[in-house]
Design a protein around this nucleic acid. Structure first.
Lengths: 233, 233
DNA sequence: GATTTCAATGGGACGGCGTTCAACTCATAC
DNA sequence: GTATGAGTTGAACGCCGTCCCATTGAAATC
């Protein structure tokens, strides 16, 4: 058959991404194939390669949607809560809830790697920055405007931490921790980390100062190592 | 050809796992295939299925080796350092170093998922517990013997946190953070989290008794949520 | 209405994959 | 010397991603 003109290019793109997302949502990333997408939308596999470079490109565009969904969700949380420990915690829980509501979809973000030489595209990085900005905003009350680096770092630590808990517990690779009990860990992480920030906040820098010995092979210096210590370093 | 008897079953198993590990180490998990293993050891693909159930089984056994290596490494760190903040930090850094020395190998632990219905085998869980035990030991000085639950939880939070940082930065999915700058985040996490623990240390054990989360859409209570509930908030 | 054009499309082809299994081979046991 | 059966092979099956080009039919031209 030739041109069908039943769908505009944009419609077709959407059709493909919708199908890809649906497949992932009910079979996981490993269930995704160009042929399966083609079957679902009643086109031939070749058509997909008119709209996208390859399957990785399709997946990347599905990831974009997920990141957008997540961002919208987190931004809406920020609208209701001014920067505070509570806001941080709510963000963390929303992240976690998101991952539980659509586990396979969320998993794609981390299961999927760029093929060897290829780099994560800039627009992808930008979307990540937007997400991080949410966390940074929520941390507003914990830092002065001059502590921008510290705030950015704290946001990344918290983000990665929550992600680590979610990710390992989902995969059953955190000993004795199930997805169920993971929320408690998230609460613990956020609560304790923020307490650590506050403990170091007004006071001087070195929360556990004594240990600034670089003993042995590894130069361990917990004092300055706790880079977070808001006042300083 | 028929029986070769050039290798005992154990030798053959080792041969296969060595080859699998080598392939993963220089091409990543996606480069691994039964056929490629067969080529490297000069056997036919079928032979692999005499020794292992399937490729997942092979991978799982490679994972076992990695977990063992990591455990040995962490245990040797513990021998040199008594429980302390420093010991925790050294463990974290060793984990991180390990992941940088053999990135693809380490990645397998998390790239690879059990096929749908299958569960992570018990011996795998046991190996995870051994790793966690290292972290728990290093946290000895931060908890009294009666606070076993709290210590176990803190160990998991730290483990997952360090993992999250490493994992996201390696995959380039932590905005503006590269594998290089990740160590700073690890130091920050460990330092600040431990500071948070110490800030709340004196407080009694009902650390999280009140936090029956699950209430409402978002029952936020940063105070009780903080597992180690530092006085502050 | 007839003709031309050419982008969209289908679908076969290629080389790879995991996995299975019948057939073959040969060290060992007798 | 022979029979046995475990170890091994390699072809076969049904997938996969990707490529490529003959075909098609909507739009442009006459």
């Amino acid at each position: 058959m030739g041109r069908r003109s039943t769908h505009t290019p944009e419609q077709l793109r959407k059709l493909i991404l919708d199908a890809a997302q649906a497949i992932i949502e009910d079979q996981g990333l490993s269930g995704l194939s160009a042929r399966e997408i083609a079957r679902r939308i009643s086109y031939s596999p070749g058509t997909i390669y008119n709209m996208f470079d390859n399957l990785d490109d399709v997946i990347l565009n599905v990831e974009a949607r997920i990141l957008d969904d997540l961002r919208e969700r987190l931004q809406s949380v920020l609208l209701e809560a001014p920067p505070s420990s509570e806001a941080v915690l709510r963000l963390a829980r929303n992240y976690m809830d998101f991952t539980h509501e659509r586990p396979r979809l969320w998993n794609v973000l981390f299961e999927h790697y760029m093929p060897e030489g290829t780099d994560v595209p800039q627009w992808y990085q930008d979307k990540l920055e937007e997400l991080m900005a949410c966390v940074e905003t929520s941390l507003g009350s914990h830092f002065t405007p001059s502590q921008d680096d510290e705030r950015r770092r704290a946001a990344r630590v918290l983000w990665a931490g929550v992600h680590g808990i979610t990710s390992l517990s989902t995969a059953n690779k955190l000993a004795s921790v199930t997805s169920q009990s993971a929320s408690r860990l998230v609460d613990d992480l956020v609560g304790t980390y923020l307490a650590g920030l506050e403990a170091g906040a007004g006071v001087d820098a070195d929360s556990d100062s004594g240990s600034d010995r670089g003993s042995g092979a590894i130069a361990v210096d917990a004092g300055t190592a706790a880079g977070g210590s808001p006042a300083g370093e």
